[in-house]
Amino acid sequence: MADQPLLAADDVHLSFGETRALQGASLQVYAGEIVALMGPSGSGKSSLLHCLAGILAPDAGSVRYGDRDLAQMTDSCRSALRRGEFGFVFQFGQLVPELTCAENVALPLRLAGTRRREAHRKAAVWLERLEVADVAGKRPGQVSGGQGQRVAVARALVTRPKVIFADEPTGALDSLNGELVLKLLVSAVRETGAAVVLVTHEVRVAAYGDREVVVRDGRIRERELAR
């Protein structure tokens, strides 16, 4: 792994008013690896994820994706990047409640300009792959939490992104469903070669990753930098 990182945060600072969420966090994510971001609540791990994904712009420091600096890009460029190259899985409530599961999965493709029929064909493939083909026509409100999370994973993967950002993806699930979601997610990214930034406070979830990074007080612990 001596080559260039896919995604790199360098000395990132971020504040929300008085609260200092990140105080010089640096991190590299390499292509195809699963990095678990760990740390107590309020340590800044979600903020770091948001900065890495270009959802939040850091106050100071830089985030580079390949050879592009996210801070230098326009908002619409960053949006396009998130649409095309990134995928997202959150803890809950991320599916658009009005759309059916299939429409939810097809949505990122359609936003990127894919035709409706083609988008729905690809969505069906991913729903099948995540073993939730049977809920395709249902609304998120009508499916179980585990099924909903798998639909969300399918939506994150449908554009074949380079990086998947997962913020406590199993946080609202029981062990069995959590394990299933993680197993399917990991095997899918091993196949597509996507890198994963996995925010979690559970070690058993972090153990699905290739390495872990601990965030505390808005910084990455020294040990991890020396990697």
Binding site: A207, Y208, G209, D210
Partner: peptide
């Protein structure tokens, strides 16, 4: 704690891999 967690995770990763 961090030192110990890193050590634990090293083993847990192996176990998770073996499990899957």
């Amino acid at each position: 704690l961090d030192t110990q967690r890193a050590e634990h995770l090293r083993l847990m990763r192996v176990l998770t891999k073996r499990k899957t």
